[in-house]
Design a protein around this nucleic acid. Structure first.
Lengths: 117, 117
DNA sequence: TATGTAAATAGATGAGTGTCGATCTCGAGC
DNA sequence: GCTCGAGATCGACACTCATCTATTTACATA
C-alpha cells in the first residue's frame, strides 16, 4: 500500500476563481432548528392551518363538537390533527364534563414567526 | 318508511348551557391555507431549516458545493432538499458553469411570518 | 475528442402520515 | 346500575417522504 507522499493541490477549479465565499456554518443539529422544523411540520397541513385559524378568530376556547362539522373529515381525523397541534405545543386543551375545549398558545406561533423574520 | 313528523329538539345538553359560543367559520379549502401549509411543510425538516439559515446568513448566493459538506448527508439528498425549498418558492437558484448557486427569497418567508402574527 | 467534475435525476427502500371505521373511555342523566 | 353521547384511541390502509446508491447531464480543461 503506497501512501500519498505528495500533497499536491487537487483543486482543479475550472475557472481561476473559487466558486464562492466561505460560508457561515449553521448550528448543525441545533436544538433550535429541530424545534422550528417540528413546529413547521405541525403546520404543514391545510386542515391544521385552518384549525389554528378558527381557534385564533374565536378568542376564547372552542369546543371540539363545534370544530368537527367545519371540516369534511371524520371526528377521529379532526381529533388526530388537534393532537398533532397539541404535541407541537401550538394549542392547549381542557376538558369540561363531556366536552373538550381547545385554544391557541400564541408563544409557539410567535417563536416560528420570529425565526422567519 | 316513516318520516319524522316531530321536529322535537334532539339537543340533550348534559348541562343546561351550550358547549360554547358559535364559532367563526374558517375559509375552508381557501387558497391561502393551502399555500401556508405548503410553505410550512417545506420548512418541516431540520435540514431544510438549516439550509435556509445558512443561505440567509450568507447574504449573497451560496454554491451547492459549499452546502453539501455542512451536512452529514449525501450530495443527492442535499440536492433533494434544495429542490423541495425551490418548489415551495422559498429559494431560487442560478447556474454558472459547473456550479449552482442558491439564495433565499425573503417574500415567501415573510408571507408565512405575517400569517403567524 | 476524451477526461474529470458539479449537480441533478432515477430507482429502491424503510419510515412516517392522513384518513377511515371500530372501539374504548368516562362523565351526565335517567 | 344502565344508557347515551363527546371525544380519544386503535388498527388498517394507501400514500408520501427522507435517504441512499447508481446513473445521467452539462460544462471545463487538456
Amino acid at each position: 500500500m503506497s501512501v500519498d507522499l505528495e500533497l499536491a493541490p487537487k483543486t482543479k477549479r475550472p475557472a481561476g476563481e473559487p466558486c464562492c465565499e466561505p460560508v457561515v456554518h449553521p448550528d448543525v443539529g441545533s436544538v433550535r432548528s429541530e424545534r422550528m422544523a417540528l413546529v413547521a411540520k405541525a403546520l404543514g397541513d391545510p386542515t391544521r392551518i385552518q384549525l389554528i385559524d378558527v381557534l385564533r378568530k374565536n378568542a376564547g376556547k372552542v369546543c371540539v363538537c363545534e370544530l368537527v362539522p367545519l371540516f369534511d373529515l371524520s371526528q377521529p381525523t379532526v381529533s388526530h390533527h388537534l393532537k398533532v397541534l397539541r404535541d407541537a405545543g401550538l394549542v392547549g386543551s381542557e376538558r369540561k364534563g363531556l366536552w373538550a375545549y381547545y385554544y391557541v398558545i400564541p408563544d409557539a406561533l410567535e417563536e416560528l414567526s420570529a425565526w422567519l423574520s
